[in-house]
Design a protein around this nucleic acid. Structure first.
Lengths: 197, 197
DNA sequence: GTCTATAAGTCGATAGAC
DNA sequence: GTCTATCGACTTATAGAC
């Protein structure tokens, strides 16, 4: 079918754009990367590129989505906490990606009309829920102190991960994963609170 | 002296701009607030406003600096940890400011040539040092477990504070201070690690 | 020294031809 | 699906009035 052919071409071009954009962003970050630059890298005009993605922001969002999916794929089966730490260690090798994530998350979370607002909202709920449930299981099996507020701890783990990216960008010798692990270790070895009568 | 007079006028105008800009930003945030808008609010043209600050980014940086100074001023004498938590509680009442801080910190930390890059770098070092020293004192006095890595914990406290702002912007019912307090409590009541022989 | 007015350039976004 | 052309918003820079 002709329709099938042209559709497939669009998808292929879209993926070529994403793959190239991912590399460019990883070198240069979001800031200072214009749509025209990305368009040149895939031999398109700026308008030609924007035909595949509605806007610059949607293009960048697509990049993050691909990245999230790839992370999830190659970590399938691992312990959630281990996954979490591995992703953070991996982030330290892709500075442009970290830059893109922090910039976009700041812009998108602060503006409900931002194209990526819903994506981030859903992402936080999903990961927080996943972490919370895992921690509850560990509490049930006695691997974790029962009186830790795991719902808050899950939010904190993500917040540390996000926040450490800023400090890491200022000083790339910072070990982001080690800082997240510190919180996790504190939670694991926190002494059960004695109930005051 | 005439020179003294005109200099004072410049400073006065600068402060009027900052005061007004602070209000406008607190309502509208950084995103969607143009220099022209701010200029209109203080009865200046865009170029007139930019004469006082080199650029939009430097203007916004000046706003954050004023905010930091005001926070520090009205908290003088309080315990550092209490100060930290009080500032976070205060942030929850100034959404535009939180928006400005997250947007600017993302943009500035990721780009060494950003006008606010050095400011953020210095700010993180300063606060981290302050927190670290305070914690060391508490360890010395026995108020805090001796084997907690306070240098990392200080960085973590700031990271949680920064990171929770994103989740709070997505859901303003989030209690940012409570999450920071969770980390602090975990550190305080963490059981001393037994040394493996 | 401070401000007005304006010019030039960049960026993202969009309309319409092919 | 890709292009040309153009629009409007923003920023920087500067010439010159006061």
């Amino acid at each position: 079918m002709a329709r099938r052919g042209s559709y497939a071409k669009g998808v292929a071009k879209r993926e070529e754009i994403l793959r190239t954009a991912l590399e460019v962003v990883d070198r240069n970050g979001m800031r200072g990367t214009s749509v025209r630059e990305l368009a040149d890298a895939v031999d398109l005009t700026q308008a030609g590129l924007l035909h595949h993605f509605g806007s610059k922001e949607e293009l960048f969002l697509a990049i993050l989505t691909v990245r999230d999916d790839e992370d999830a794929q190659c970590m399938a089966g691992l312990d959630i906490i281990d996954q979490f730490l591995l992703v953070i260690e991996h982030n330290a090798k892709t500075p442009g990606m970290v830059q893109l994530f922090t910039s976009l998350s700041a812009a998108a979370t602060s503006d409900p009309s931002h194209p990526a607002h819903a994506w981030f909202a859903e992402r936080y709920v999903r990961f927080r829920t996943l972490l919370t449930e895992t921690m509850r299981e560990r509490q049930a099996s006695g691997e974790m102190p029962a009186d830790v507020d795991v719902e808050k701890l899950a939010a904190v783990m993500m917040a540390v991960s996000d926040g450490m990216q800023l400090q890491w960008m200022l000083d790339p010798s910072t070990d982001m994963a080690a800082h997240v692990r510190l919180v996790w270790d504190l939670a694991l070895r926190s002494a059960p609170r004695t109930v005051a009568s």
